[in-house]
Design a protein around this nucleic acid. Structure first.
Length: 487
RNA sequence: GAGCCAUUAGCUCAGUCGGUAGAGCACCUGACUUUUAAUCAGGGUGUCGCAGGUUCGAUUCCUGCAUGGCUCACCA
């Protein structure tokens, strides 16, 4: 700020600030609690007409008419017009409005009336400066479009673009609704460590930080999964955590290095129960926040009303890629099918990884209306329980809509011996250079050895759900301060 | 990480086939007691992202860099 060259606009505002001080008016004065919000005055005009109100807010427009002036005051709940008259305020006080700038915060006291043109207005009997704005606001007519400014100076975006403001209000309501629903359903919100000595529960590269006193490296969590399962072992049967997750990966319209997930665990349930919970949770958020269970996302109508169809990954791959994995038995045969389909391989992929590759390459994008893709291969599901009838597959599903994943869930693996084998397989991949492979977590296996009840777990990418419910094309539109390079 | 595109006034944008730039809003001066994108009269407020190169001359052409966007790669 200091090194900023003061342009004409800023000089003018500072000059007005100095003039205020010279007149004994503090340009950054104390607060003033309003009696009403603008929207309430408009809504309750019939009962408020001619009564006195005190309102506060930011000046967003001024129209002077010599001996009278109109201005628009924007507050938390909307905006309202205010009306200044010289014969009402007295010459001295009236002339001071010359020192108003768009962007200033003021408090006004006055009576409610309606103008000739029918605009509900507060006729000012007295006013006070609250805060001088030393920089000009973005232009009101076109708003703020420069995406870089919008992200770096989100406060300007929130002032200038009402739909952005509404998106973040809805974000808050959606998360609150999730909490309400989960609490209503008997789940308890938990808080587990963000800094961990082993980053587990997902296949992803973690961020690393350092603790001075302990002289150890710590990872920022990539999932809340393994700690929440420890809570099931401890007898907290139904738990969830809403919180920030950190993954040291690329940035895209659907990926931000830090994002918000909700993970939900229910003892004695299985993945079918989690499908019912998922569709209820997401559709009910839409109903409670938007008033309907159908949303339009980027021109595409998504009907969130339960139940959503369930279809196996093998069946979907057969449908969209024309390859029937129930007829393919070994790793080599699967790789041959992949080569014929033109998929790039490094030659070490297992059957289940190939099936997943087919799914990602040919199917994901096709899944437009909400659907549960079920029965994921064990090779890509190190924490999910195997199917008894088909040990190459697990009781796992992911929910998709508009071609994007929004939820992932499975019947939890609670066999400590099987879990150890899965970790060891991941470890081998890690040693082969796969930085996203799971780490060995002895402490978690020890916990499993004490016995974890059969359970199901669910993870939802909250930011993506919010994208769908607010019709936002990029995850950056639903994260207040998305990760950017420093300027 | 790769490719493509963008970066001009406070904001939204136009423009210069190479001669250092313009509009609307905002802002400044004045008029105006029911306006509301107020109106009327006057005023242009700029490191044309940064650094080099070519040139008599670069905001414009070339190269590099920075930041952002999109696509791809990456990504339970």
């Amino acid at each position: 700020m200091e090194q900023d060259q003061l342009n004409e606009l800023m000089k003018a505002r500072r000059q007005k600030m100095i003039q205020l001080k010279e007149k004994g008016i503090e340009p950054f004065g104390p607060g003033c609690v309003p009696t009403h919000y603008s929207a309430d005055i408009v809504a309750q005009f019939d009962s408020l007409e001619d009564t006195n109100v005190t309102i506060t807010g930011r000046l967003i427009g001024i129209r002077t008419h010599g001996k009278a002036a109109f201005a628009d005051l924007k507050d938390y709940r909307g905006k309202i017009q205010i009306y200044f008259r010289r014969d009402q305020l007295g010459e001295e006080k009236y002339n001071l409005i010359e020192l108003f700038d768009i962007g200033d915060f003021i408090a006004v006291e006055g009576s409610v009336f309606k103008t000739r043109k029918g605009e509900i207005t507060v006729s000012v009997q007295d006013y006070r400066f609250l805060t001088k704005a030393l920089r000009p606001l973005p232009e009101k007519w076109h708003g703020l479009k420069d995406v870089e400014l919008r992200y770096r100076q989100r406060y300007l975006d929130l002032i200038a673009n009402d739909e952005v403001r509404q998106t973040f209000i809805n974000r808050s309501k959606i998360i609150q609704t999730m909490r309400d629903l989960l609490n209503e359903w008997g789940f308890l919100e938990m808080e587990t460590p963000v800094m961990q000595t082993i980053a587990g529960g997902a296949l992803a590269r973690p961020f690393i930080t350092y603790h001075n006193a302990l002289d150890i490296s710590l990872y920022l969590r990539i999932a809340t999964e393994l700690h929440l399962k420890r809570l099931l072992i401890g007898g907290l049967d139904k738990v969830y955590e809403i919180g920030r997750i950190f993954r040291n990966e690329g940035i895209s319209p659907v990926h931000n290095p830090e994002f918000t997930s909700v993970e939900i665990y229910e003892s004695y349930a299985d993945y079918r129960d989690m499908m019912v919970l998922t569709e209820k949770l997401i559709s009910e958020c839409a109903v409670r926040v938007l008033g309907q269970s159908e949303v339009v996302y980027q021109g595409e109508t998504l009907d969130l009303t339960p139940p959503w169809p369930r279809e196996t990954m093998i069946s979907i791959v057969q449908k969209y890629a024309g390859v029937d994995f129930s007829e393919i038995s070994g790793d080599a045969a699967a790789r041959e099918a992949a080569r014929q389909a033109g998929l790039e391989l490094d030659g070490k992929e297992k059957w289940g990884e190939i099936l997943n590759l087919f799914f990602e390459a040919f199917c994901e994008e096709q899944l437009r209306s909400p659907i549960f893709v079920i029965d994921y291969p064990v090779d890509v599901s190190p924490l999910a329980k195997k199917m008894d009838s088909e040990p190459r597959l697990t009781h796992r599903f992911e929910a998709f809509m508009a071609g994007k994943e929004v939820a992932n869930a499975f019947t939890e693996l609670n066999d400590p011996l099987d879990q150890r084998e899965r970790f060891e397989r991941q470890l081998a991949r890690r040693e082969a250079g796969d930085k996203e492979a799971h780490m060995m977590d002895e402490d978690f296996i020890t916990a499993l050895e004490y016995g974890m009840p059969p359970a199901a777990g669910l993870g939802i990418g909250i930011d993506r759900v919010i994208m769908f419910l607010t019709d936002s094309p990029s995850i950056r539109d639903v994260i207040l301060f998305p990760t950017l390079k420093p300027r």
